[in-house]
Design a protein around this nucleic acid. Structure first.
Lengths: 143, 143
DNA sequence: TCTACTATTGCGACCAGGTCGCACGACCGT
DNA sequence: ACGGTCGTGCGACCTGGTCGCAATAGTAGA
């Protein structure tokens, strides 16, 4: 159980939530499932160690953690979305060809964000959506 | 029937596709349904003038047009996606609070894109995903 | 430690948005 | 005008996720 997991549980407890075995399992799964697990990567991992934990419990836990600001999810493509602990700022980039997900460093994100704000007044948030494009290993992006 | 619509039909014909009344109706609906109609805005508009046109026909037409490069769709949020004719370059911005959709001007997009490429090697595409944030009329974005 | 309160769970039904396979009908090149 | 074949309508189906309910089980307080 790493520090992000214990922090998550702590946050949960402080918010008046209950620390249940299921929640421990979901959090544990989230922290060991690689950097960008989708909802059902997490669910699958949970099912591995505790098949009796219901799918809807996984979703509910993920939602609860999202409400507490502990985790966040990013929509990738039609129907896919990945979860991860809130931490490093910066946006997500997803490759349209191979599906790989990368982080945009916070400083680059901020300068980009400033530019966009100047042009449009929009304040970019770094969560919720990945920016799509092509990773260095795939062909240049089309439209 | 505006020029984008006739161009779309022309493209369709050139690709060996057939110009059917249903497709005309879908294209017409798309061109008159405002700048960022969702799939079912389009469907609703189609149903208004021709209730016998089936929902799946609307989707299929939209997909066909997307394959031909005539229209494109942008994912906004959980389950929402909007269609529009391919035209002005630049990305889409969507406000997390009020849902309004704005265009990022092409020149800003290009400079942003260059920055991102320098930092990560990723070539951003301007389609398929909106960038989320807060519009000038709403509060600043959270994380 | 025991109790009671209430958050959480498991379950299955349900929902939204979209896709598919099939048989029929209609474009459109010739 | 003909006919091959693309497109359509239809309904079943799929994915990813949510909901309401009764039962269970954390947790605070005595």
């Amino acid at each position: 159980m790493d520090s992000r997991s214990t922090a998550a549980l702590e946050r949960l407890r402080r918010a008046g939530g209950r620390v249940t075995p299921q929640r421990r399992i979901v959090i544990e799964a989230l922290s060991t499932a690689g950097p960008h697990p989708s909802a059902d990567d997490v669910a699958a991992r949970v099912a591995d160690v505790a098949p009796e934990v219901h799918l809807s419990t996984v979703y509910r836990t993920l939602n609860t953690l999202a409400e507490l600001g502990v985790v966040t999810h990013v929509h990738l493509d039609h129907g896919r979305s990945v979860y991860h602990f809130v931490g490093a700022n910066g946006a997500h980039l997803v490759c349209r060809s191979c599906g790989v997900v990368a982080h945009l460093p916070a400083d680059t994100f901020h300068s980009v964000s400033r530019k966009v704000a100047e042009a449009t007044g929009f304040a970019l948030g770094h969560g919720h959506f990945a920016w799509s494009g092509s990773c260095p290993d795939c062909a240049p992006a089309d439209s």
